[in-house]
Design a protein around this nucleic acid. Sequence first.
DNA 1: TTGAAAGCGTTACCAC
DNA 2: GTGGTAACGCTTTCAA
Lengths: 338, 338
Amino acid sequence: MSLRRIASALNLSITTISRALAGHSDVSEETRQKIVDEAKRIGYVPNEMARRLQNGRANAIGFVVPADPGADASSIFLQHIRGIWSRLERETLDLLVMAASSGCDELSHYRRLVEGRRVDGMIVSSPRQTDERIDYLLQTRFPFVVIGHDRSRDTAVMSVETDFSAAMRMAVQRLRDFGHRAVACVESEATDASDDRFEAFRAACLESGIQGVELSVDDTIAAGVATTANLMQHPVAPTALVCKSAKLAFDVFQSLQSRGLAAGRDLSIICLEDSPLLRACEPGITVVSQSADKLAYQATDTLLQMRGGLEPKRLFVQPELTAGNTDGPPGGISSRPV
Amino acid sequence: MSLRRIASALNLSITTISRALAGHSDVSEETRQKIVDEAKRIGYVPNEMARRLQNGRANAIGFVVPADPGADASSIFLQHIRGIWSRLERETLDLLVMAASSGCDELSHYRRLVEGRRVDGMIVSSPRQTDERIDYLLQTRFPFVVIGHDRSRDTAVMSVETDFSAAMRMAVQRLRDFGHRAVACVESEATDASDDRFEAFRAACLESGIQGVELSVDDTIAAGVATTANLMQHPVAPTALVCKSAKLAFDVFQSLQSRGLAAGRDLSIICLEDSPLLRACEPGITVVSQSADKLAYQATDTLLQMRGGLEPKRLFVQPELTAGNTDGPPGGISSRPV
DNA sequence: TTGAAAGCGTTACCAC
DNA sequence: GTGGTAACGCTTTCAA
């Protein structure tokens, strides 16, 4: 209804209007100008649906946020959305978002997007050990990029992830430079049951000449309290703590406060995962990580490049330091009264 | 390419296939069954773009999340997205999400969605006093629903909001029932510069026979510290605090902890805004509010009803109590050592 | 440099 | 009950 309108107003063919507006070279400068003017005058905006039907692309990519409530204290997915969008907006592509609980219906949501050709590609966040979503996408040969890493399929999937070993090295070195000699690293048992969970930590300690203490806590109950208690009675008496997850760092931070201890003074804390949760804290928690939105931006950029055929590979993004006030020269948590 | 495929496989017309699959009554049961079977066999999924072009609807609604970083410690927008989606999924409608900073380009993003007919309606969150987005949508007569309230246009826009007065009453009554006699209410100066900011609080206090203390703090600097200090030296010595925003409640909570005081024991805290931030706290903060996802669900439902022509009005949702551990019998913050 | 026509996959309006 | 035909608004191929 709209190209036609310009066409009849100017006594030109629809074809010419289309080509002029698309910037093709085979339109005389004079008519092109007339067309552009008229289009602007009537406020022409092309009908996306017609365009999409015609060239068989959805001009959109999909993103699924987990719907499990409570799982999002870190609100990392909102940052993902921002990151994806910031790459998408220059291309005039749309971002379709769905929410799905990891249960039964999640896969059917993926099918709907993929098979209904509603999106041209997908961004998948927080992969799980055995991930039916990824299996499905691989099997249908649909373009997608994973944010974060999926151990089980090293080569087959395209992924964008923070260089975790580098982050660990940066954190441990920073603590060493502050004067710490013994550093603990904590992670929740549930998150990641692999064998080499502390591998990067060990390597970093070795490199920095630091004595490393490995802690594993159950995520379901008060993880922060458990960690703090563990540290206070630990024979090695670590003066600093590296947390793998934001929630864990936050919990420990709170647990310290409720004991009248202060992060940064009594115990240095560095977190390897970014989250608005940590920035809301007072004092701010030191983070060594790549921000979630940059990661998502990178993933989206990679997805767009995949149109030109790109071999799947793991893409490592270097972490950055966001200095807070929770790390500094060693204090000593176990020397304090409880 | 696909209806056609079924048609030629069964030696029927495309029309019949379409009607059979759409569930029209004018297809014989026998052929309908054959068609459905064949469709299932080849895994037929209709092409959404063709469908949308045909019936002139986008089958999608739009939502814009603010891109201003840091503004989202509460991650309320993710909950909005979940709420919107939970209403949308049964209808097989899509959710388009954009991120925009409240600056220059925000409006152009709205234009793109509306004028490119990419969405049939919009959900607008956190309206501002003078909101060009709302002006634009009103002026183009585009269907939209606002989550939260916009004072300046009481009648013209459809909005879904928590019944704030009711929430305030619930909070104050609850504190009175715990035995509190003097309660403070705090809000940040920036959020809402209207005259009747404490109106609901005053009414609730009057109703419950409580002495009310009104506090206003500057949001830009350590609001929690300021609030706590203010309370400790206040002549009335309130034993409980009602916070209008989640960030404020969180800040006060932290400020108490860092002084060795405990929310719930030394000072009762009730927050009137829900947020994952509050649930991450240990102990959990008591909230009287409607959850963000329910509000968004309601807004979406209303938006869908607007297709049937619905007069714009303010829709009030009743708040619910999420009991935490930050409120109880009066303790007394000012009687404690600093 | 321009235009006519076909086609993208679907639905709706008729006629049979 | 069923099938042809047009239409949704655009892009592309091929002729002129």
